[in-house]
């Protein structure tokens, strides 16, 4: 049977959006995220919640390999969001990545154009560990002084990738790191150096 969506679509979507908005506005902070969802594995409740809150027919989704292998995941997302599932990363408004260590190069996703840098993909990475006050050093808009953030698993060359992504500002992708019950974000405006 198809897993259910939000209990209260209006306020649950708003809650998820505000958590994502606050995370993007304050990189390095961790925002709580209660979803109440039980989506088909390996889609995590947090990835599902962000997709349900923000994706629709105007915002195509890209799924990583493990998610694509489970038809129940696509069925769940199609039914609840109405979003088109695309196999082309550069067409995606949101990319759901259940295995972040194997995430494709960020440059394969939509980067936006110099005149319209907003036409870029937001990557949502399902991490298992997420903590602030340790790990990478963050600096940039939204950060008072400096901040630190640690997440795992991530690609081995994560810091270099984020460096290249930031160097392309204002073009580039934005990252949401979602662990169980909480999330943080790394917009393209954030400079990240190794911890």
């Amino acid at each position: 049977m198809l897993a259910r969506g939000f209990t209260d679509p209006v306020h649950d979507s708003q809650g998820v959006f505000r958590a994502v908005m606050d995370a993007l506005a304050r990189p390095g902070t961790i925002q709580g995220l209660a979803t109440g969802l039980e989506p088909p594995s390996p889609l995590t409740a947090e990835l599902a919640a962000i997709a349900l809150a923000l994706a629709d027919a105007d915002a195509p989704l890209w799924l990583d390999e493990p998610l694509r292998q489970h038809p129940a995941v696509a069925e769940f997302l199609r039914f609840h969001t109405g979003a088109r599932l695309t196999g082309t990363p550069s067409e995606a408004a949101f990319a759901l990545v259940s295995d972040p260590a194997a995430c494709p190069e960020f440059g394969t996703f939509a980067q936006g154009t110099p005149a319209y840098p907003d036409r870029s993909t937001t990557l949502v990475l399902a991490v298992s560990d997420l903590s602030c006050g340790e790990g990478w050093r963050l600096d940039g808009p939204g950060i008072r002084g400096g901040a630190r953030l640690a997440a795992a698993p991530v690609p081995a060359d994560m810091v270099e990738r984020l460096g290249r992504n930031h160097a392309g500002f204002p073009q580039g992708v934005d990252l949401i790191l979602a662990a169980a019950g909480r999330l943080a974000a790394l917009p393209r405006s954030t400079r990240v150096t190794g911890g």
Binding site: V10, H11, S13, L24, L54, D56, D118, T122, P170, S189
Partner: peptide
């Protein structure tokens, strides 16, 4: 809730998220 339909809110919310990621754009 808050007058706008949910589809419109999602569209505006996506725009807000990109606006925050690209300050001043």
């Amino acid at each position: 809730f808050a007058y706008l339909d949910e589809g419109t809110k999602r569209m505006i919310r996506r725009a807000i998220l990109k606006a925050i990621a690209i300050p001043g754009y």
